[in-house]
Simulated assay, not measured.
Amino acid sequence: MHKKQEQILLGHGSGGRLSHDLLKSIILPAFSNPALDELHDGARVLAGGASLAFATDSYVVKPRFFPGGDIGKLAVCGTVNDLAMCGAVPLYLSAGFILEEGLPAAELERIVASMRLAAREAGVQIVTGDTKVVEKGAVDGIYINTAGIGLLQPGADITAKRVKPGQAVIVSGYLGDHAIAVMSERHGLTLPAKIVSDCAPLNKLIQAMLTEVPAITMLRDPTRGGLATTLNEIAGDAGVGIILEESLLPVRPEVQAVCEILGFDPLYLANEGKVVVFVEKEYSDKVLTIMRQHPLAGEACIIGSVTEQPAGQVALKTTVGGLRLLDMLSGEQLPRIC
């Protein structure tokens, strides 16, 4: 049972436990249907004989510009990646803008130009949209919603229901870069130049992987709530355990240092250009080879495996030999991260 919410808190936007409670107590009961109930990054639907994926997301990141990206690039890449995680080839996007009165037109031009470049990189078109302007103070400069549709790749069946004990868990690269890059810009911190957002469209990487290895069972990009929260969602949906190896987790030393100073856990930090892959171990080497040949996944590595126990939970095998349970993010480490 999920407690009914009396009022909305900032933590309800974390992507963690509070977000799930909000969805399951109010949103999902109102709209329940087979496509929605799968709770994937997007919906898999049939239309006129075509197998489609449909996804939408809204972006309120603060600040609007940060090392490695901006709210416009994030809006395009985020929806492209949600479609790709469903096993689809993204085709078309919509873009909805809510603008605050007084926003400099030059900033809007810069954001739109960034969206154009990101769409070109992903190979998608922005074909429809909407613009609203509200009074000064009603929003923080600009909020963007993007939605998209894509064609599901033949043979791909990406669902948590296919995640089984014995499968390998792979991540495409360094964790936590996006969150730390945004936080540094927000608070005026000076960090090493290599810490920039990983914001990028992953669809061409995913397409190459699924073309060569259609046996991949699950894909997910660990955005809000980070890797630990994402894996908790999958473990719960699949009814399996997931055990990670601390020594195998790819975290930049610079990001780890910032986390230790500020009290963050990189496993709960948002990423905007990473993918977690579940696949039978017999295919893991082939998947890694494909990933490492792509510029966005050169540091891809196996980080753990699927087990029978602890069912529905995620555990971390520490470097000293202990086993630490990784719960879903319960609060909000960094609000307005995407």
Results as ranks from 00 to 15, higher is better:
Asp237His: 10
Tyr143Gly: 01
Phe31Arg: 10
Gly87Leu: 03
Asp221Trp: 09
Glu254Cys: 05
Asn203Lys: 03
His12Phe: 13
Gly331Val: 02
Pro295His: 10
Pro253Ile: 03
Thr56Arg: 15
Glu245Gln: 12
Pro67Ser: 13
Asn203Gln: 04
Ala43Glu: 02
Met218His: 14
Lys281Thr: 13
Gln5Tyr: 08
Val279Gln: 00
Gln309Met: 15
Pro90Trp: 02
Tyr283Thr: 01
Ile144Lys: 01
Thr229Ser: 15
Phe31Asn: 08
Ala200Met: 12
Gly239Thr: 06
Glu6Asp: 14
Ser114Arg: 04
Ile158His: 00
Ile216Glu: 00
Val89Ala: 15
Arg292Gly: 02
Ala238Leu: 07
Thr159Pro: 02
Val127Arg: 09
His178Leu: 03
Pro104His: 08
Val112Arg: 06
Gly226His: 01
Lys3Glu: 14
Arg292Met: 07
Ile98Leu: 15
Pro154Ser: 12
Arg186Asn: 05
Glu185Ala: 15
Cys77Lys: 02
Ser114Met: 10
Lys194Trp: 07
Glu282Met: 09
Glu280Val: 05
Cys77Gly: 07
Leu219Thr: 01
Gly141His: 04
Ala257Ser: 14
Gly273Lys: 04
Ile337Trp: 03
Cys199Met: 12
Gly49Gln: 07
Ser284Tyr: 08
Met328Phe: 06
Pro34Tyr: 08
Val306Ser: 01
Lys4His: 14
Leu175Thr: 01
His40Glu: 02
Cys77Ser: 15
Asn33Met: 06
Ile337Lys: 09
Val213Met: 13
Gly298Asp: 05
Asp82Phe: 10
Val320Asp: 15
Cys77Met: 10
Gly68Glu: 05
Arg220Val: 15
Leu191Phe: 15
Asp41Gln: 15
Cys86Phe: 02
Val277Gln: 02
Arg64Ser: 07
Gly78Val: 10
Leu28Asp: 07
Arg186Lys: 13
Leu326Val: 01
Thr128Val: 07
Val163Arg: 00
Ala200Gln: 11
Asp70Leu: 12
Val61Cys: 14
Thr319Lys: 13
Leu117Met: 11
Gly78Ile: 04
Ala179Met: 12
Asp157Val: 09
Gly225Phe: 08
Arg220Tyr: 10
Gly141Phe: 06
Ala235Met: 02
Glu38Ser: 11
Leu52Ser: 01
Ser330Asp: 10
Ala200Ser: 14
Gly188Phe: 11
Gln125His: 11
Ala168Arg: 01
